[in-house]
Amino acid sequence: MLEIKNLNSWYGESHILHGVDFNVQEGEVVTLLGRNGAGKTTTMKSIMGLVPRREGSIKFKGAELINLMPNQVARSGIAICPEERAIFGSLTVTENLMLPPVIAPGGLSIDEIYTLFPNLKERARTAQGTRLSGGEQQMLAIARILRTGSKMLLLDEPTEGLAPVIVQQIGRTIREIKKRGFTVLLVEQNFRFAATVADRHYVMEHGKVIDMIPNDQLAANMDKLHEYLGV
């Protein structure tokens, strides 16, 4: 579904990604693991076209994305939930939820979203999106891209800094949307969480993908993984 070959990215003078290769099959949940600064978030942003300069190949359902603007990438059916969550303070919670345009049929309805995230329903009248708690903001950031009909979701560290109970809820959500046929590319620091949701794991280091571990072989590769992640 998503096939990335020799992806290079730059921020000004600094060369961040040095030829990233990986692929995601339809209906899979795939994680990018790696230490801080390995280039995971930059990979996500590069897919969306949110970096100043990028080269290589990003094929989505067979179509090349490398020269498209972010809005065109989004229209092709990829949606991002960024690390910083990007909840808009000048928008109400409902406005935040309704902000991303629906690009295709097949997204979740508002009722389905409220069933998945009951908290959001209670907070729907909150005037400022940024008044929500961190966990609620994260749910809102995920919820709003489920509406759009994009079937490929990029989730950048959705569990970062959240309480265990909320992490569990997000885990349930990811398994639920996988069941509904969504494809997910997940960036995670926390591979214990990643192991509960993912099919495969790519490991990144110094702007490259250096290894791939299927989830069912995770236990066998634990030593290697500890070495990669330095934990």
């Binding site: 949110l50 603007m69 809005n71 949606a79 991002i80 000048s90 928008l91 902000l99 991303p100 759009t148």
Partner: peptide, 23 residues
């Protein structure tokens, strides 16, 4: 909704564009 897009783009234009809005 148009106004919401405007306000959001004022805060963080690249993100709004990444949602598929032609900023």
């Amino acid at each position: 909704p148009l106004g919401a897009k405007l306000r959001a783009a004022t805060e963080n234009a690249p993100m709004v564009q990444a949602f598929g809005v032609n900023v």
